[in-house]
Amino acid sequence: MKKGSLEHLKKLNRHLVLETIRSNQPISRAKVAQKLNLSRSTVSAIVDELISKKFVMETGFGSSTREGGRKAIELRFNPRSGFGVGVELLLKGLFICITDLDGYVVWKERWETDKDFRTIYECILSSLDKASVLMDAVIAVGFCIPGLINCKEGIIVDVPEFGWKNVHFVDEMKKYLAKPIYINNDVNCAALCERWVGGAKDLDDFIYIYIGLGSGVGSAIVANGSLVLGKDFMAGEIAYFLLEEDVSSNRMNMPGEFGIFEKKISGSALAGIEGTVQQLFRAYKKGEPSSILAVNRFVTSLSVGIANMVSLLNPEKVIIGGEVSDYMQPVLNEVQSKVSKMTPIQTTIETAMVGSEAGAIGVIAYSFELEQNIM
């Protein structure tokens, strides 16, 4: 076997052993070997390496066998053996989140500051210090960014909010951070957060729809366990959805303008009716006719969009996030009912479990997934 192939096999086995311990803890070396159909000597060598790196710890003897045989030493995954740093770039500053390997937040902090690379680096150092986490324990640093991202090349293609175009973000940050660095779009990150610690935990097929208080509308698609990015990293741009009524009225999507579907379901569109989204839904609950009409129109438009996505992608769940989702509980059952009537392909529709931290936590999940071969 070639050296490269042997190294790949070792990494694969190491990952399999670690995930088996993580999913079945506490578990003995013998049971790991049995589950993976690997030799006990191979598993023992891998476990010894994982213990030396503190990814795994021995927790004492388990129960004896049925035959009264010797008790085996049991193993557990150690989530505090490494940490991730997630940095969400905001219009006014940064939001930094630090988690362990299980997604438990050990520190979070918002910084109202400039977004030059040195300042970002200094804020990360300060947050790590406050969290009592050493840089040596950081597995990776991820950046959640509100715009069009080439995550494979580490390039910010376009972020209109910041006036950024074609910024080689990862290359610039590498001048300050000697750690693996990853970037992704904020909606994708929020979806990955829900998959890691939220309502889509461990699901391989789901859709995340973001509806912000402003003009922002977007979605992220997870299919067969992977993010669907698209040729130009623009998969999930539901803001550009069209209905037959739009085409017949010659309402088309134009470059540089808000999408037609976005104009129907965004926070800005809803707020323009009653003043704020909160006021609109409050008036809806009070039974005010104009608000009922506006919310019903929103529910129908959103349901049509979801039904079309469900028919195309067959997701197990559709999760609605963003600030508007905070007000949607009174109409969620109606959205579910309408979608169920619009398509024979059934799904579950829920609001997101994780709020404003989702982007920063999700980009940590994304970074850990890409760095899993180190474990």
Rank of each mutant, 00 (worst) to 15 (best):
D129G: 10
D129Q: 12
D129E: 14
K130E: 10
V133R: 04
L134E: 12
M135K: 15
M135P: 03
M135H: 06
D136N: 14
A137G: 03
A137V: 02
A137C: 09
A137W: 08
V138T: 07
V138S: 07
V138M: 08
V138Y: 06
A140P: 02
V141D: 00
G142N: 05
C144D: 15
C144L: 04
I145W: 04
I145N: 05
I145V: 15
P146H: 08
I149L: 09
I149K: 03
I149A: 02
N150K: 12
C151F: 12
C151Q: 10
K152F: 15
K152S: 15
K152V: 10
K152E: 15
G154Q: 07
I155K: 15
V159Q: 08
P160Y: 09
E161H: 12
F162L: 14
F162E: 09
F162W: 14
G163L: 07
G163S: 10
G163T: 09
G163Q: 10
K165Y: 09
K165N: 10
N166Q: 14
N166F: 08
V167W: 07
V170H: 08
M173C: 04
M173G: 02
K174L: 10
K175P: 01
Y176L: 04
L177K: 14
L177M: 15
L177Y: 13
P180F: 08
I181E: 08
I181P: 09
Y182A: 02
I183Q: 06
I183E: 03
N185D: 11
N185I: 06
N185L: 08
D186Y: 06
V187I: 13
N188V: 02
C189G: 04
C189R: 00
A190M: 13
A191H: 01
A191E: 00
L192S: 03
L192T: 05
C193G: 03
E194W: 05
E194R: 04
R195H: 03
W196G: 00
W196V: 00
G198A: 10
A200P: 04
A200V: 07
A200Q: 05
K201M: 10
K201H: 11
D202H: 11
D204I: 05
D205S: 13
D205Q: 07
Y210N: 13
Y210E: 02
I211N: 00
I211P: 01
L213F: 12
G214W: 06
G214L: 07
S215A: 13
G218M: 05
A220R: 03
A220E: 02
A223E: 12
A223P: 02
G225S: 11
S226L: 11
S226T: 12
L227T: 03
L227P: 04
L227E: 02
V228Y: 10
V228P: 03
L229G: 08
L229V: 09
G230R: 11
G230D: 05
G230T: 07
K231G: 11
K231D: 12
K231I: 09
D232M: 11
F233R: 11
F233D: 00
F233I: 03
M234I: 11
M234S: 14
M234R: 12
A235I: 06
E237T: 00
E237D: 11
E237P: 01
I238T: 01
A239H: 03
A239M: 06
Y240H: 14
Y240L: 12
L242M: 13
